[in-house]
């Protein structure tokens, strides 16, 4: 029975059905299923399958968006239940996300945020058009492990550098890893501005965030996925 439920959870994410995912989460809670198991054995395998299919070119961004929405719906139920039961979901790291100053685009960044959350990161999304000082202030407040800076335009991409400068100015750079992304961003650009990593898409961003967490104690190198 539980195997079937987990399978349905997985499929609800793959199919991008928020209502179904939410109902399955509610049913699991009502049936006394461990919320942690529902997350790890039901929903996360779904989002991982989506990531794999996306990487193979079998799913596309609108599919990813729908799957991320379904994941959010399920997690809203299960996170509430986890809190109620006093259980802490193992936290992969604290991430502050935002789109750089002058840039109002946030589709890609939202996708990254959703996938990071689904994979156990605590994500604080500052939204679009965010000045460097705001990134630094939030990173300081939350003791962030990672700051993720998105830019869609070549003209606003330059402001990713100012975020790094703001973190440096605030004395946060040694403990905060910076990852950058967005359509015009390249590994070379990431290296040039002194970012710690660059991800070409949302799924790669999750893997990048994990490797940055692993590398936190290691000497600085730019990671690219």
């Amino acid at each position: 029975m539980q195997v079937e439920t987990f399978s349905a959870m997985r499929q609800s994410i793959i199919d991008g059905l928020p209502d179904t995912a939410r109902n399955l989460a509610l049913q699991a809670v009502a049936a006394g299923t461990s919320p942690l198991e529902a997350v790890s054995d039901g929903f996360i395998p779904g989002i991982e399958a989506v990531g794999e299919q996306f990487a193979k070119g079998q799913m596309f961004l609108p599919d990813m968006m729908a799957s991320a929405e379904a994941m959010r719906a399920a997690m809203a139920v299960l996170d509430t239940e986890l809190r109620k039961q006093g259980i802490n979901r193992p936290m992969a790291g604290v991430v502050v996300l935002g789109t750089t100053r002058g840039d109002i685009h946030e589709i890609g960044k939202q996708l990254v945020g959703t996938l990071l959350s689904a994979n156990g990161f605590q994500v604080h999304d500052l939204g679009p058009d965010v000045p460097g000082e705001t990134f630094a202030a939030k990173a300081l407040e939350l003791k962030a492990d990672i700051v993720g800076v998105s830019a869609l335009l070549t003209t606003t991409m330059r402001n990713q550098k100012t975020v790094i400068e703001s973190l440096e100015k605030a004395g946060l750079r040694p403990q905060v890893k910076v990852m950058v992304g967005g359509a015009p961003v390249t590994r070379r650009w990431a290296e040039e501005i002194g970012a710690d990593g660059y991800a070409k898409d949302a799924m790669s961003a999750v893997a990048l965030a994990r490797s940055l967490m692993d590398a936190k104690a290691q000497p600085r190198t730019t990671v690219s996925l």
């Binding site: 070119g57 961004l61 359509a183 070409k200």
Partner: peptide, 9 residues
């Protein structure tokens, strides 16, 4: 157009 595989234009 927005490329649905790569998120590029």
């Amino acid at each position: 157009i927005f490329d649905m595989r790569t998120g590029t234009s």
